[in-house]
Design a binder for these strands. Structure first.
Lengths: 225, 225
DNA sequence: CTTTTAAAAATTGTTAACAATTTGTTGGCA
DNA sequence: TGCCAACAAATTGTTAACAATTTTTAAAAG
């Protein structure tokens, strides 16, 4: 495909991923191709390609043959694996970021915290989700490893879907207070403290997940058995 | 797409990835769609989808609009980033694997080493490459985290392409001696030693890469400037 | 009123024809 | 010979029509 088609597919991927990440499309939602064509003002071939990509790359969509695409419902095991992998990457990124603290990068961290503050001030939940994800992405960019950034970006997306599916209450647990403490430790150059704070930050998020139980959706087996 | 088409695309992806990983398709090789259709006995649409996947997921193919697909030529920066990320994952995997040492898993490690020995005995270079990759995949599977396994699998593929492009001599540096030492440390439950051996193993591979210089292929700018 | 069956509609899956672009070749001409 | 234009071939990119499957609707039968 030419660049134009690829860009269009990416546009659709981004729109859908954003909607899933910001919990506007709950897990299990049916994604009918013709509706997406209408809503996104797109070509059906492109929509199909985008859905395939979301299914095979980020795994936030699952495709059932002859039945169509749905917002994915990751299993408890997958949720655990995603968190385990993410913590791993986040810890390493914190360490790398501390070694790359240029004036510009310090500034980026401050600016990012301001964005989050603004989102909270406006009580804009979707923007809060978006910005809390951006915080971790900025950290990865400061770490200066594009491969790590790409891997983490995928895990951030999946994490948000997992939260939609398993978190007991809908508040955004990826809090600015913990981000602020992290930034303080990073700017202070205290790698050990920063790493520990990142561990605790991830643990905080994980603590509110109901990973002992089944997915939130109706389990016919349990409900009728 | 239905399951059948997806399977067919995956078959093509696997065939192409194997050829690239085993250095049968050197970096920069042109991949003409019609030739692939012939050689792989496939449909052109499926070939195109497979090439797109290899480009956007594993990044071992690069697609130039209106010019076609080529075996990728990762930059020195990308090579460094891939290795940095891979070391990170491998270290963690070693630690996790030691905690999961069932009888079956001990056996899998032994069996894997036997496979590698056999490849060496037969002087089958392509099988040696394949099996040395399998060693790291088995380790990831023993670690018991499917997400980590998937991420590492992608990085192993990319690593092999990087070696094809940047290693000074063509021997397989991912050696069974170091694998054997690693297995000994793991079976002995010595996490600190095993992690250190993994570090050294990765360092050994990296040591033979010419990452100070340009890619091996002719650089017109440098050659004619 | 419930169940069954058949037809219609909606939705997904597949393909090959067509279009656009790049690459290669030939022949004229100074 | 060297250069250029026009044509031809090869290759990639795009699309819409067609096929297959599932879901819905409606009618008929018990």
């Amino acid at each position: 495909m030419g660049t134009r088609a690829q860009q269009e597919i990416q546009r659709i991927v981004d729109r859908l991923a954003a909607a899933i990440v910001e919990h506007r499309l709950p897990p299990g939602t049916r994604l009918v191709e013709s509706k997406l064509v209408e809503v996104l003002n797109a070509n059906r071939n492109h929509v199909r390609a985008a859905l395939q990509k979301l299914a095979s790359e980020q795994k936030v969509v699952s495709i059932v043959p002859n039945r169509g695409a749905f917002v994915a419902q990751p299993t408890v095991e997958e949720a655990r694996d995603v968190f385990e992998a993410r913590i791993l990457l986040e810890r390493a990124i914190v360490g790398l970021a501390i070694r790359n603290l240029s004036a510009r990068n310090r500034n980026r961290l401050q600016k990012q915290l301001e964005q989050e503050t603004e989102a909270i001030r406006r009580h804009d939940r979707q923007e809060m989700i978006r910005e809390s994800g951006n915080f971790h992405r900025v950290l990865a960019e400061i770490a200066g490893n594009q491969v790590l950034t790409d891997l983490l970006t995928g895990l951030i997306t999946r994490t948000s879907l997992i939260i939609a599916l398993y978190q007991e209450t809908p508040e955004v647990k990826c809090s600015i207070e913990e981000h602020q403490a992290l930034v303080d430790a990073i700017l202070g150059g205290d790698a050990a403290l920063a790493t520990q704070l990142m561990d605790e930050h991830m643990a905080t998020i994980q603590r509110y997940l109901l990973l002992d139980e089944r997915p939130k959706t109706v389990d016919l087996q349990a409900a009728l058995g």
